[in-house]
């Protein structure tokens, strides 16, 4: 009961923004930021035990290397020592880059291109093939800006543009559905759980 009232006050506080920016809205906004940050922090702190303490207890002392590297990131608070952050940043960027390059090449380029090519057997497959090529050519921005471009490129870009507009129209409808779903959830809470009207 009290919990429902607290939730309702928080909800109405944030919603008061549609009328105007008020102290109630500001309090709700800062409450959200504070509680959200605290929640993420607490949950992440609890991960220290299984990810760091447990391997140490199991005798896996190599875990001290990334712990030391992670601690180097605190050098940003000491004047003249910020360069030490370069070590952990280089490691994380290197890992992220290696993983994503491999993932992008295999999942997003090879797999997608091969599926585009192998599905040509049907009318739908031909349409998708034409669409994909035209959309990729649409994003070819390093074409010559002086002189004539090949007519094929101009036509391909026009077709690509049509495909993109249709896709954006589809995305637009999904965005409307998604946003309206969020709003109806809050209205249902206020009228149902809080006021018991529905």
């Amino acid at each position: 009961m009290a919990g429902t009232w607290i939730a309702a006050i928080c909800t109405l506080g944030l919603m008061s923004f549609v009328i105007k920016d008020s102290p109630l809205y500001r309090l709700a906004e800062y409450t959200f930021l504070a509680v959200g940050t605290a929640y993420s922090f607490v949950l992440s702190l609890e991960r220290l035990n299984p990810v760091i303490i447990t391997p140490i207890k199991q005798g896996k002392y190599t875990i001290f290397i990334p712990v030391a590297l992670g601690l180097l990131l605190y050098s940003r608070f000491f004047r003249g020592k910020q360069w030490l952050m370069g070590f952990p940043i280089s490691v994380t960027i290197g890992v992220g880059l290696g993983l994503s390059l491999k993932g992008i090449v295999s999942s997003e380029i090879v797999k997608q291109l091969s599926d585009t090519y192998t599905s040509i057997g049907s009318l739908e497959g031909v349409l998708i093939f034409v669409g994909v090529i035209c959309v990729i050519l649409f994003f070819y921005f390093s074409r010559s800006n002086t002189g004539a471009n090949p007519p094929v490129l101009a036509v391909a870009r026009k077709i690509g543009r049509v495909f993109l507009m249709i896709a954006f129209g589809c995305m637009f409808s999904n965005v409307i559905l998604s946003r309206m779903t969020l709003l109806l959830g809050r209205i249902k809470f206020l009228l149902g759980d809080w006021l018991n009207i529905i």
Binding site: S100, L101, I104, V105, E108, I109, Q112, L113, T116, E124, L127, I128, F129, V130, G131, V132, I133, C134, V135, I136, F138, F139, G160, V162, F163, L164, I166, A167, G169, C170, M171
Partner: peptide
């Protein structure tokens, strides 16, 4: 039809172009 053909083609084109840019 709209989802499976033009939208898929455009999304795939964006995905591949984005992937090339990331590489």
């Amino acid at each position: 039809f709209i989802r499976l053909i033009p939208t898929t083609a455009a999304s795939r084109g964006i995905l591949i172009s984005g992937g090339l840019g990331a590489i």
